[in-house]
Amino acid sequence: MSASLFEIRNLSKHFSLGTKRTGGVRRELVLKAVDDLTFDIREGECFGVVGESGSGKSTLGRLILNLLTPTSGEVRYSGFKGDAKSVSASASDSTGYGDISALAPASHEMKLLRRDMQMIFQNPRSSFNPKTPIRAGLRDVARFYGLTGERADMKIEELFALTGLGRDIFGHRGDELSGGQLQRLAIVRALIPSPKFIMADEAVSALDVSVRAQILGLFREMKERLGLTIMFVSHDLTVVEYICDRVIVLYLGAIMEIASARDIFSAPKHPYTRSLLAAKPRGRPGEEKKYERPEGEIPSAVDLPPGCRFYGRCRERIPGVCDTAEPEAHDVSGAPGGHLVACHLYR
């Protein structure tokens, strides 16, 4: 098993929604977008994050990149020793794991660390200036990371070759390109500072089927050829199954299950994971579905009841147990890598 790139420890992000008066008592309304998550992201893996809208996937991504400051908990990164002087561009010469969430998001240290961690968004059209010529825009990014002149152009051409883009689009502007071309450009832009970690938030969800396959192939290549670690956030289980090595399943901000992609898709344990799989399109007509669909829709993460968050929709709930104590995640496999499940059925 390879070393961890990130160690996420008891990470929470709660949003206060003001107060509400019920029966004369003033209560604070808190939305627990991410609630006490502990897990590792290992070097060189593609780590999938799945769950319905509102399960906290995107908030988690933003917390890891320190684009949001957590309410509590740590995001420990292998390339950061914990004090500002030790910020280094390479993880191999450092041993400690410093908590990057303690850094101010706009601080100098954080800016240096951001070379290591880049992000790719869902809609490439809204992340490019429609009126800036492509090469000029990429040169600006390169300059920001200290690459100028010939070195910048060489880097850009190298990445164009990697992503299969032609030099003929250098003079084009963002609004003249197709969605697939723009998403390749987003990848080029993310790779300019030679990062170690890519956060892809629904990076293929807005693309046409044929283009989606091309971009997925590119993600695999990035992982294999550049040794990148990728966090792949998606609600599309078909895509996650195809591309990810390990998967975390989130529901209302909490971990339901973490395991290898193979175990998640072929031997899921948590009733929530099973019901997500029931909703996955079959791929071929008439194929049998193995699991039952969940009841209803995801509730709000405000004012969660005690017990398991999935209680209200779970088909295997045990009254008196599941609605009283919140289950803790524990290993059910004993195998290397582990298979964590947070469910009372597996106690």
Binding site: E52, S53, H235, D236, L237, S275, L276, A278, A279, K280, P281, R293, P294, E297, I298
Partner: peptide, 8 residues
């Protein structure tokens, strides 16, 4: 829509 909602 989300997977589960698409399915519904």
């Amino acid at each position: 829509l989300d997977v589960t909602v698409q399915d519904q």
